[in-house]
């Protein structure tokens, strides 16, 4: 089972995602903004990072770029709300492997995470 870094400024969203992931048997580490995410990323070396886009301090796009700069192989998926298409496009150009749209159902998150981890 894998270690997944969950980055979202909303504790509620983290809690919800974490529940799904731990149920799958994954270990979840969390961060509440991009800067913190980099810190946790360095320390924990997660196999997969789920990045929210809109966050204070450092947003998801910046964090993605920073993560890919330090670990080009890192698997990163963006968690985005509807209406953030241009951001998602930018994220994909910057090396995001996938994206999950909020609000997501459990099934969808599980599918995305499983596929990314299997890759």
């Amino acid at each position: 089972m894998a270690k997944v870094l969950l980055v979202d400024d909303a504790a509620f969203m983290r809690m919800r995602c974490a529940k799904v992931l731990t149920k799958l048997g994954h270990t979840v580490v969390e961060a509440e903004n991009g800067l913190q995410a980099l810190d946790v990323f360095d320390k924990e070396q997660p196999e997969l990072t789920l990045l929210d886009i809109t966050m204070p301090e450092m947003d998801g796009i910046e964090a993605l770029k920073a993560i890919k700069a330090r670990a080009p192989q890192a698997k990163v998926a963006m968690v985005s709300a509807m209406g953030q298409q241009s951001m998602v496009l930018e994220a994909i150009k910057s090396g995001a492997a996938d994206f999950v749209l909020k609000p997501f159902d459990e099934e969808r998150l599980v599918a995305a995470v499983s596929k990314l981890l299997a890759a």
Binding site: V29, A37, L38, K65, A66, A69
Partner: peptide, 24 residues
Amino acid sequence: APAPSTPTPAKAAEHPEGGAANGA
């Protein structure tokens, strides 16, 4: 592809050890 940047984790240091998971 990904423009190399050197983000400073300085601000992250404000959060205590383990703060990422529990600090929130």
